[in-house]
């Protein structure tokens, strides 16, 4: 699959502080790519470099195969973490101005803006000033500004922070929608659930270094520990546990169940298969629940950072 955005060994220093250290990332076309990392890891620095707000000290960035240049700004839509609009400017005028800065003609921008205003049912806002709008309303305008020029690459920096739940949902749906229409989405966040929910690919940055990246499903596979969550009803629990612990690593766990069963997390060694575990369990009791434990992004995040500490 072809990549829309490729970063090769990108580094950035602020004085003595290393904000990014030889970051390499490949973002496939029409994917949703999540950059994860704690605050101060270097996510925003990277995003600003892609937006050509800051220049990297070393390394190269390619958009659609070409080295990044000034003209590319019209293919990029950016929703920064620190966001706002001119308070005393009228909504319509303001969006048109920002869209024209992105290279749209005034006529085309007006046409598209009318479409969006209809879609979001905010047609009567055109002549209102931003300061007359509520925060949630301003956020909608902000989103329109980001997507109006139909960019190939959409960059959202912490898109869900600061948005109210209704608008956050709207943005989530639009992100998926835009991806389906062909856009590639890069977003940075420190909220793991949103990556879980949305991302096809992810990269983990910590203290200006990339710790891991790849397809979310593959990373999960890589991080799974061959652990199974089991709910079983046995006659003599203590005897059973003793036998079980001779062969497998066992930890108590909890999940919601309608049965009075023994709830366990069982980890199997590589030389066993899950069928071995199953046949062992079957011979001792009635199995109500058997499921593989898949690590959450949050678990992966914490585990990776701890292993690098």
């Amino acid at each position: 699959m072809q990549n829309l955005l490729v970063a090769k060994n990108v580094s950035k220093n602020y004085g003595d502080f290393k904000a990014l250290n030889k970051l390499s990332i490949e973002i496939p076309k029409q994917s949703i790519f999540g950059i994860l990392g704690p605050n101060g890891a270097g996510k925003t620095t990277f995003i600003r470099i892609v937006n050509q707000i800051t220049m990297p000290d070393e390394g190269e960035i390619f958009l659609d195969g070409e080295p990044l240049k000034q003209e590319h700004i019209q293919y990029i839509g950016y929703l920064p973490e620190e966001r706002g609009l001119y308070k005393s400017m009228k909504v319509g005028e303001q969006v048109l101005y920002l869209a024209q800065l992105k290279g749209l003609s005034k006529k085309e921008a007006t046409k598209r803006l009318k479409y969006w205003f209809e879609k979001l049912e905010i047609g009567d806002w055109w002549d209102k000033k931003i300061q007359e709008l509520s925060k949630g309303m301003a956020q909608k305008i902000q989103f329109i500004v980001t997507v109006l020029h139909e960019p190939k690459l959409l960059i959202f920096d912490e898109p869900f922070s600061g948005f109210d739940p209704v608008n956050a949902n709207l943005i989530r749906d639009e992100i998926l929608n835009l991806r389906d229409q062909g856009a590639t989405i890069l977003f940075s966040t420190h909220r793991m659930e949103s990556v879980e929910e949305l991302c096809d690919y992810m990269a983990l940055i910590h203290k200006s270094n990339k710790l891991l990246d790849g397809k979310v499903s593959e990373i999960k596979k890589q991080f799974k520990s061959n652990t199974y969550q089991v709910g079983i009803e046995v006659a003599q629990e203590e005897v059973f546990l003793q036998l079980l612990k001779e062969k497998f690593e066992v930890e108590p766990t909890f999940f919601h169940s309608i049965h009075q069963d023994l709830q366990l997390n069982i980890k199997i060694e590589p030389h066993f298969s899950q069928n071995d575990l199953l046949s062992f369990l079957m011979s001792h009791g009635k199995i109500n629940h058997f499921v593989e434990v898949i690590p959450s992004v949050n678990d992966i995040f914490i585990k990776t950072i701890q292993s690098h500490a």
Binding site: I76, P80, G84
Partner: peptide
């Protein structure tokens, strides 16, 4: 107003 970052991305 925090609009600056949007402007200078253009």
């Amino acid at each position: 107003n925090r609009i600056i970052e949007i402007i200078i991305s253009s």
